[in-house]
Design a protein around this nucleic acid. Structure first.
Length: 843
RNA sequence: GGGCGAUUAGCUCAGGGGUAGAGCGCCUCCCUUACAAGGAGGAGGUCGCUGGUUCGAAACCAGCAUCGCCCACCA
């Protein structure tokens, strides 16, 4: 009774995955111990937002990290993969506010800060458990005991410590300046949280009547409503058209303010009329011009985007209403000039999509220049390796042009800024209230401020925890490039500031998984793919393999074919397992190895070496190709067939050894099915506790490799002949030179004879030629086949002759290339002679 | 306005100075005792265009075209 009959032909991932994950967890397979004697390896997981479910990007990134962590464990490192969740201040704000509006028709201001924060906390709690479940579905080898959440007490302490330190060191300061204001969120956001979109707008010509005399000055603007806050007009000092205008006064319509015309270099005479209106409270450039001219800004807007009391009759209107109203009343009064269509880029809030209003407000800023210097240094010197390197250069460029960072948000959900205002106007930063009568700043910190502490705050900082001591700096950070600036670069700065060491030694920037049509996945377009659905349909291992196989430095359109490819691979391996279980057990002792045994061991050995090197450099796609091609194209297609046809006494051992090696190579990429197969073939240890195959120079066997290479080519030549000439029955032939006799005879199904019977065919296979006897019946079609071969080989000869007759080639090309051509010419010339002679015989 | 990248088989994509690769799809044969989600064999490409470097370019360089992405305060 052969054992494999009891194992189904197809692997059932549903049955296996949930069971194995629990087993891994119970066994403590993912635990990492800071007191270990081993060398540490650590990755902190980019924490998913509490707002969202796992998407394809998470699946890809999670798989890559899992590959590296499991591999590190198998290579003998004490490997930690630390999981986490981000409270996602502004993102969760939006989700909860939308829900509140939808379900109760209330805004956050209706229910108040305390209640709102409570709702956020509850939502986060619920959403979090769902996300953690999804991480498990992926198979992620994370140490759950070390799960961190950015709102945990310990983590909060780290964030506040960092803020207080930066404040006391003078990096954090308060400034009244133009920020990107989101009227919907009623909060400032940072430059990086603004998305600029091409918008079809209009340029409105506005006319400002001269106070003295007749006439007006015309200005073009895209935001006419901001004229209510104008404090000056400016022209370029070299603009001769307006020499007389400088120093004149004009009247701002509706508000009646008389403002002066100044000269300033900033103005581009070729744009519009060459006259610019200055609205310091509502435009960053104007703010600077206003400062140069010593003019006070006039703010005409409320935090919610409505016009305030400075806006005369327009007070209370929304931005949009005010724009229409201003334009139509200008028109009524003859003060509206030309109105042109104008395509320009308008900033939108990254989280809610609302049009951003550049708006003057009081915010906390973090001065970046000095903090950036050490970060630049580690990137320039290559102390941090980035895959691919182009992103290292990008990061450098960005750091070189860094603006100060607005870290305060007028939101409620998040880390409240630890700045306290004393009864006598004192301002201090402290983790706790300095005493009675002190009031805390109402704002919260930018989410990314807390994220910037992630690599060390998760390990216990500011405590000198043993985890921090042992696992920091982390080994690698893997992430999508879209948060390179928002997050990665800031972690480098903060890591260097607070630990004096880089937060990670390597950065893997992976590609973005696009929708099938090659556009970005987005909920609004409805083209998202849910990885969990894929896991259900194809099996997690198959999806993981497909993602890795398809990943590269380029963004890629997700293709279900890759998951199907992974599934086919799983099936292939699964059936190899069934084969091995039905194969004779290894006998006592090593056994005598055949050339084929030596060959497959040698090949495997090389694959293991190259595979490991590829993973070390985050070349996941190439690594998958390599092991796939070996497992399927060499092991299954050839060695398994050889093991059936001409086994040696060592074959049962070698077969299991190589297959077990393949499972160990693949385990990091396809953890579930490999674990199941490993068990079936009798391994007692979990795969993460088995040894990752390492290169063994003794197994390298050039001779066996060359022999099998020729043998396989000879076999293929015979198979091709059979297929093309439609020859079924047995063939007789000479044993070609330099092939492995047993393998050739068995796989080509050619009966070796001493002499051919006279009606022969020559089958070329590179530097091997297979000579076989033909029956008269088999001879049919031989003439046509010979002509085709003669044609093909003739071209080869011609090509080599051309090259070799080029004196420059012979002189300048490397020796081995020239020599190679000579050999090819010789082999092919001989072949051509033989084939031509044979054709003559047959004609 | 700057920067980065892409353009290779019908499709999705690798590769990379020395005769063009994979998966899927297509064609022929085969349900043979691991596997039809499979096996054996095959067809299919002047590697975007134009120049240059080189003995040799699909690969390196320059320009162009097309398509992406990122950065930037022109009203």
């Amino acid at each position: 009774m052969s054992q494999h009959k009891e194992i189904p032909k197809n692997y059932d991932h549903r049955d296996v995955e949930a069971r194995l994950y629990d087993e891994w967890e119970w066994a403590g397979a993912f635990d990492a111990d800071p007191r270990s004697e081993k060398e540490p390896y650590s990755i902190v997981m980019p924490p998913p937002n509490v707002t969202g479910a796992l998407h394809m990007g998470h699946a890809l990134n999670g798989t890559m990290q899992d590959v590296l962590v499991r591999r590190a464990k198998m290579k003998g490192f004490e490997a930690l993969w630390l999981p986490g969740i981000d409270h996602a201040s502004i993102a969760l704000h939006n989700v909860v506010e939308r829900k509140l509006m939808l379900e109760e028709k209330k805004t956050r201001f209706d229910i108040g800060r305390e209640e709102f924060v409570e709702i956020c906390r509850t939502f986060a709690q619920e959403s979090r458990s769902q996300i953690l479940g999804q991480i498990k579905r992926l198979g992620a080898a994370v140490d759950w005991r070390k799960l961190r959440y950015t709102m945990d007490d310990g983590y909060v302490d780290g964030v506040l410590t960092a803020f207080v330190d930066l404040f006391n060191a003078g990096y954090i300061y308060r400034g009244n300046r133009i920020t990107n204001w989101c009227p919907h969120d009623r909060s400032a956001i940072s430059d990086l949280e603004v998305n600029y979109e091409e918008t079809n707008g209009k340029l409105y010509g506005l006319r400002y009547p001269l106070v003295e005399g007749e006439g007006y000055a015309q200005v073009f603007t895209t935001r006419p409503e901001t004229m209510l806050g104008d404090v000056a007009l400016v022209v370029n000092p070299d603009d001769e058209r307006y020499t007389d205008l400088v120093g004149c006064k004009v009247r701002v319509p509706f508000v009646g303010r008389e403002i002066e015309v100044f000269a300033d270099d900033y103005v581009d005479p070729s744009f519009g009329t060459g006259v610019l209106k200055v609205t310091p409270a509502h435009d960053p450039n104007d703010f600077e011009i206003g400062q140069r001219l010593g003019l006070d800004p006039v703010n005409v807007m409320n935090p919610d985007g409505t016009i305030n009391e400075n806006g005369a009759d327009f007070a209370g209107m929304s931005r949009e209403e005010a724009r229409k109203s201003v334009v139509s009343r200008l028109d009524d009064e003859g003060l509206l000039g030309e109105v042109k269509d104008y395509v320009h880029r308008v900033g939108h809030c990254d989280r809610c999509g609302t049009v951003i209003e550049p708006w003057l407000s009081e915010q906390w800023w973090c001065s970046m220049r000095e903090l950036a210097e050490p970060a630049l240094e580690v990137l320039r010197s290559g102390e941090i390796t980035v895959y691919p390197d182009s992103w290292r250069r990008e990061a450098i460029r960005w750091l070189e042009n860094l603006q100060d960072w607005n870290v305060s948000r007028q939101l409620w959900w998040g880390h409240r800024i630890p700045v306290w205002y004393g009864p006598d106007g004192e301002v201090v930063a402290a983790k706790e209230s300095p005493g009675d009568g002190w009031e805390q700043d109402p704002d919260v910190l930018d989410t990314w401020f807390s994220s910037a502490q992630w690599p060390f705050a998760t390990l216990g900082w500011p405590e000198e925890a043993e985890e921090l001591e042992y696992f920091y700096p982390t080994s690698l950070l893997s992430t999508a490039r879209e948060i390179m600036y928002l997050w990665v670069v800031r972690m480098i700065m903060m890591g260097l500031r607070f630990r004096g060491e880089v937060p990670f030694r390597k950065i893997n920037i992976h590609s973005i998984v696009l929708a099938e049509d090659g556009t970005k996945m987005s909920k609004s377009k409805g083209n998202t793919i849910n990885p969990l659905d894929l896991f259900d349909e194809y099996g997690t291992d198959a999806v993981r393999f497909g993602l890795l196989y398809q990943s590269s430095t380029q963004d890629f359109a997700y293709s279900y074919e890759r998951a199907a490819m992974g599934r086919a691979f799983v099936t292939k391996l699964w059936n190899a397992t069934r084969f091995i279980l039905g194969y004779p057990e290894p006998e006592e002792g090593e056994g005598e190895m055949s050339v084929a045994d030596r060959w497959i061991l040698s090949e495997f050995n090389r694959v293991a070496r190259d595979y490991d090197a590829m993973l070390e450099e985050c070349e996941f796609s190439e690594a998958m190709r390599l092991v796939y091609n070996f497992a399927w194209g060499q092991f299954a297609d050839w060695y398994v067939e050889i093991s059936k046809a001409t086994p040696s006494s060592a074959t049962p051992r070698v077969l299991r050894e190589v297959f077990s090696g393949i499972l160990r190579l693949l385990h990091p990429a396809m953890p579930f099915v490999t674990e199941e197969m490993s068990r079936l073939i009798g391994d007692e240890k979990l795969l993460v506790w088995q040894k990752f195959p390492a290169f063994n120079p003794e197994l390298d066997d050039e001779e066996a490799a060359a022999l099998l290479d020729r043998t396989k080519r000879a076999v293929s030549a015979v198979r091709r002949f059979r297929a093309e000439s439609k020859v079924d029955g047995e063939l007789e032939g000479l044993l070609p030179d330099g092939v492995e006799a047993g393998v050739f005879t068995a796989l080509a199904e050619v009966k070796p004879v001493e002499e051919l019977n006279g009606t022969n065919a020559t089958l070329p296979a590179g530097d091997v030629a297979v000579e076989i006897s033909l029956t008269d019946e088999q001879r049919r079609g031989e003439i046509e086949r010979l002509r085709k071969e003669i044609d093909r080989v003739g071209k080869e000869v011609e090509r080599a002759q051309n090259k070799l007759s080029n004196a420059n080639f012979v002189e300048r090309a490397p020796e081995e290339v020239v020599e190679g051509e000579r050999e090819k010419l010789e082999v092919n010339s001989t072949m051509l002679d033989t084939l031509t002679r044979r054709l003559k015989e047959y004609l």
